[in-house]
Design a protein around this nucleic acid. Sequence first.
DNA 1: TACTAATGCAACCACAAAAGTTACGAGTGC
DNA 2: GCACTCGTAACTTTTGTGGTTGCATTAGTA
Lengths: 140, 140
Amino acid sequence: MKRNSRLSLALHTLGHMAADSKHMRTSADIADHAGTNPVVVRRVLGKLREAGLLTSEKGHAGGWRLARAAQDITLADVYLALDERLVASSPNDDVPTCVVEHRLQNKITAVMEEIERSLIERLSKTNIAEVQDIPEPSHG
Amino acid sequence: MKRNSRLSLALHTLGHMAADSKHMRTSADIADHAGTNPVVVRRVLGKLREAGLLTSEKGHAGGWRLARAAQDITLADVYLALDERLVASSPNDDVPTCVVEHRLQNKITAVMEEIERSLIERLSKTNIAEVQDIPEPSHG
DNA sequence: TACTAATGCAACCACAAAAGTTACGAGTGC
DNA sequence: GCACTCGTAACTTTTGTGGTTGCATTAGTA
Ligand code: FES
Ligand code: FES
């Protein structure tokens, strides 16, 4: 897979859920469909649950379901739930060690933060329901 | 180090070069200052040379120098020279395998490409000379 | 109660990407 | 010729991430 495989997995799954939001899915089913492992699915979807996008239920008839309407879940919600930072770096990166480097880093991070914000802004304009517009009858 | 260490190394070095653009620096000096290895420095600066931002000379008095005025080297130049793609993914990623996933991926990549362009646009508005504004006398 | 099916979570293994390292060839000035 | 430098290839080490196994926990069902 690639760098943002978590994001891909999350969006793919949410896309299917948006198409049939009542259906309860198990991590095994999802993993099978996405070509990965149930534990990986639970790891990723667990993040989405922490962010309040999904609910999960244990036990016999358990599984995963949308926590709210698909129209109310944006790509930004998903992106932030997985706390990926494509552009901006984490604040705890490295000590400046020097004035010049400190200044340099400030300028760079300022630009990166700006871009990160515009990314999130842009992502918040598309929701899960839009992403799941099936052109033809689904095949499975 | 972290994910964009190449970019950090490049900008840090260019920042110093912008402050004293006549001075010829060896990869050993640069590596020593940046806390890394001469070969790593040559690898990174080699990319910048390919992009026409730097020149290198072999031999006794050899080393590295800016290929043009610091004001004419933007952050976008550096970013593109290192051919990093912070946001957008490479085109050869993975086969769609399905219509739904294909559609999904299309939407995502469209957003990402848009963000990548705005990132480059933004980076092109700052040049190396701006990044290197020393507030106090340098310490080394 | 016993059984089954699901999540939750911790601890590992496997693999890949990147930095770091070593080595050596090839220019260049003394 | 010698010292110094880049250029590059090959290798090792580190790190991040997905994959895997195992088990406790929870919930439905007979
Ligand atoms: S790190 Fe301090 S001057 Fe470069
Ligand atoms: S990959 Fe999910 S429907 Fe084809």
